[in-house]
Design a protein around this nucleic acid. Sequence first.
DNA 1: GTCTATATCGGGATAGAC
DNA 2: GTCTATCCCGATATAGAC
Lengths: 227, 227
Amino acid sequence: MKKAPGRTRDAILAAAASAFAARGFSGTSVDTIAAASGFNKAMIYYHFRNKKGLYVEILRSVFRFMGSRAADIADSDLPPPAKIEAFIDALDSMAATRPYMPPIMMREMAEGAVHLDSGTLRLMAAIFNNLRRILDEGLAKGVFRPAHPVLTYFTLISPIIFFRGAAPIRVALGKTHLPDVRVVDPAAFVANVKSTAITVLTAGATGARSPRPPRRRGRTNRPGDHA
Amino acid sequence: MKKAPGRTRDAILAAAASAFAARGFSGTSVDTIAAASGFNKAMIYYHFRNKKGLYVEILRSVFRFMGSRAADIADSDLPPPAKIEAFIDALDSMAATRPYMPPIMMREMAEGAVHLDSGTLRLMAAIFNNLRRILDEGLAKGVFRPAHPVLTYFTLISPIIFFRGAAPIRVALGKTHLPDVRVVDPAAFVANVKSTAITVLTAGATGARSPRPPRRRGRTNRPGDHA
DNA sequence: GTCTATATCGGGATAGAC
DNA sequence: GTCTATCCCGATATAGAC
């Protein structure tokens, strides 16, 4: 049925990503992945060295992709605040497009990145460094105030990853124990993260012109959207 | 050597919490926990039903503790902004005192809370509801603007959990790939989360008197980090 | 490249002595 | 309450046919 070159590999990778996201590395059996991919278990060992090899391959692609997007944004000619917004948008759209990313990232964080070889760690560091470049540029241009890059990094990344990654538990809790809580639109959440970031970064900057005054768009924050 | 009543149980719980945090539920073997606790594997099955029973016991204690702290704060007579700060402080001090908490929470989020029975989910919901009470009180008193509780919840929780939970990878990355990055003081990070939260919540509130004008302490944050 | 066995072993769980 | 010994399933990994 399925014969295209590299197709098998991709099917396995896709199935594995979802499975690893849902149940973690050791919680996922190779048989499960094989079944989900539509192929046999032996194919996994044919295309990848072993279970960990498959897992690391996924991690690498995740961080590589994020790193290249971050580099594109940092290299662009957008003004720094727009770069920050683009950075957040990119992160969120990746999380939305590839729902396996947030859980996998959360698990790796919790695990202390023991599965990450030096090359993959470099990819992670690259993402951070691109954010740092944006911050430095904004500072040099006088549109950002000084901000610790690590602190900023976590403040931007964590809400997106957490919100997207916690989607299943969020809806489960909403249905059973918090039925009166209005569902949160992901776009509203992202808009909120963006406007928060911009305001924090631009407030008190040395430079005169704040190229994009922090206004709220969307109805993230409107009278009466409390519970 | 160790004979005090309930001491064995506690030793097992402590060893299990660390192990589960580091390697997850299925990544941790019962033998490992037994060895770390100083007891034998059979003792685990004597004191707890099975591996999952032990795990759920830990989850329950975590959420119960957080829930009771949150309730205390919500019930206190502090002004709402101080309650928010106390809420954040409590969360962070729990994460600092019990380093196993952030990783376990991150893993449970990623897993969609499949290990959580209805009772434990109620405990989680209780934490959220206490935050919501604080927000409602602030709104009623005119010191907070309307804010969606879920959005606020994630914005407060995720940076703390992420930052504390990612401590191992943070230092590892810092040493190997980002040697020039200044180490972030957890206290500075928490201060930043607090001042951001307060400013966001109080900005544009209807009420006249803001019982605690959002001033920043520490140098994490300065003029106008609202949004 | 893809499949069907199958070897091998780790780990959850229990029996039963002390 | 605590230990040793053991059962046994499930999961990684491989051999080898097609």
